[in-house]
Design a protein around this nucleic acid. Structure first.
Lengths: 192, 192
DNA sequence: CATTATACTTACCTATAAGTAAGACAGGAA
DNA sequence: TTCCTGTCTTACTTATAGGTAAGTATAATG
């Protein structure tokens, strides 16, 4: 009661953790409320429907992406930190048990999602792809790394590999993610 | 009643479709029974628990893999048909709405799966990876295609990319899968 | 012909999900 | 002081999930 907005943030934190560890269908409002020591209806007060919660999460992810890429997208600059930051973020999330990236989580249930959620997911992916394509293009121009062919196709392939690797890491160990990230580095001429 | 084993097969067919279009949590026995025009308990008769059904599905996938790769694994031979067959199979599945590969489906719910199912999934992935690594190694030796670095790491990366691409294809269109497959071809020196 | 196994159906159970309506209670504003 | 608003709780509802026990019909077998 003292700090009202805390609850909302805590709900979103917990929901993010659950979404990325169990998928969209894999968590319930009860999972959130019991963890926070509040009642189920308290979660519904902040997010009337689960869809609202999911939309808020996606919006948050989009904000994170925008904030992390705004300067680069507007003024350019070195592309390598963008790339490295993204890989580090991915690995860190995975080590916290958040192995399922939002796209993975929502793609599984995509067919049954309400239209606004589908739209938000698609737009988020478009934005991510646009940013990552730019990173690859600029990085190649500036000779920070190298690869052949279309940057967008390459961006898509790398994002797909990361998403797949994260999930496969759950089944056969976290080192799978490291292996794939190393492979991507090698393919970009970033051998260590 | 006339052809008893039909029902069991039909259950598995439908379950496979549902598993790969909605994920493991995303379908119920009701989805299967209503589609077949039988009662819920009929499905339980053939597969007492959902875990049993999942295990049977994985076993079936493993059989398909073994049958499709047995000759190659035992006696060698051209690797390219193995590769092409796999890509074609993946694309075909995806076009039938089966965009979520079994690894993707089970990886989402992995943490909550009973141990036998976890084990079966892990073993299936090990087998798949072993086969695909062999395909890449042999194909490189025989100059059917080319790539640098460790074959297992490359196999892992390609499998991850395919898994990710299949899921992303649901969100942003089937052409994403084609793009990634083309990229893989290019990376293996298989430009058309 | 009687028995038995197979492949179901009917009729349940328990748990959990998302969601809602109405009330409680604190703090600030009129 | 009263009223209002924001933040909850209590106490539900409805739907669906996985699962089970007991009975039924058919087909094969002794």
């Amino acid at each position: 009661m003292i700090r009202a907005t805390d609850t909302r943030e805590q709900i979103m934190d917990r929901a993010a953790q659950l979404l990325m560890s169990r998928g969209y269908k894999g968590f319930s409002y009860r999972d959130i409320s019991s963890h926070l020591g509040v009642k189920n209806a308290a979660v519904h007060y902040h997010f009337p429907a689960k869809t609202d919660l999911a939309l808020a999460l996606i919006e948050e992810y989009r904000q994170v992406l925008r904030k992390g890429s705004a300067e680069f997208m507007a003024y350019g600059g070195p592309a390598l930190p963008q790339l490295q930051g993204f890989f580090a973020f991915t690995a860190h999330q995975c080590k916290l048990g958040r192995c399922i990236c939002p796209f993975g989580a929502f793609s599984i249930d995509y067919a049954e999602l309400p239209e606004p959620l589908q739209k938000a997911t698609t737009e988020f992916m478009d934005e991510t792809l646009k940013w990552f394509t730019q990173v690859l293009e600029v990085g190649r121009e500036q000779k920070e790394f190298s690869f052949t062919g279309d940057a967008k196709a390459r961006a898509l392939s790398i994002l797909a590999a990361l998403q797949g690797a994260r999930q496969m890491a759950r089944i056969n160990g976290i080192e799978i993610l490291d292996t794939v990230v190393k492979q991507i580095h090698q393919d970009l001429g970033l051998d260590i």
